[in-house]
């Protein structure tokens, strides 16, 4: 077992345990904080895969923006303290079987897929800069130009929807 594999196992353990705690903890604020740790673990997985850009973007967007948004949303709810009800419903056995089947299926596909890599591949780069290639692909008509422009429209739509919803809250309060 190489050092990288040990590091990966530690990171994976942190990510999975905190992901479980997100749904198991009773205080909703603690769930939000565990979610931050879980997302941090994902960022560290990206770092071990040499994908620095995705690692920092994961921290920037998911921890910096989305977690803040979730915490603000948590503080808008009334019952921030503690949930006392049961944490599972009658269908939990079915859900367990379903998720186990999904896990087994995904593992089987990955194990038999001949393109799956277990050795770290060097990311293609022009003199050490793979971000440059990403930037050029974003504005290349043969590349990702349409998704790039659609993304901005999508962001606009998200903003319009968000403002509409919160304006609605204000109106119903007054």
């Amino acid at each position: 077992m190489t050092t990288l594999q040990i590091v990966f196992l530690i990171i994976a353990a942190i990510t999975l345990v905190s992901a479980c705690l997100v749904v198991m903890t009773r205080k909703i604020m603690h769930a939000a904080l565990w979610l931050v740790l879980s997302l941090m673990g994902v960022a560290m997985v990206y770092a071990t895969l040499q994908s620095g850009f995705y690692a920092v973007v994961q921290v920037l967007v998911y921890i910096g923006a989305i977690s803040t948004l979730i915490i603000f949303a948590v503080m808008m709810t009334r019952n921030v303290m503690e949930d006392v009800g049961p944490q599972s419903n009658r269908g939990w056995g079915l859900a367990l079987v379903g998720s186990l089947i999904l896990f087994a299926g995904t593992s089987a596909i990955l194990l038999t897929w001949d393109k799956a890599q277990t050795v770290l591949q060097e990311i293609p780069a022009v003199n050490g800069e793979n971000i440059q290639m990403l930037g050029l692909a974003l504005v290349d008509p043969m590349g990702f130009l349409i998704p790039f422009e659609v993304a901005s429209v999508l962001l606009l739509a998200a903003l319009v929807a968000a403002i509409f919803l919160t304006a609605d809250i204000k109106r119903s309060r007054s």
Binding site: A65, F72, A73, M76, T77, L159, I163, T166
Partner: peptide, 18 residues
């Protein structure tokens, strides 16, 4: 309980962050 104002700012920020 906090007001919705904070949430709106966080949403606008999220859009610009992405």
């Amino acid at each position: 309980q906090f007001k919705a104002q904070y949430y709106v700012f966080a949403l606008v920020f999220l859009v610009f962050d992405i």
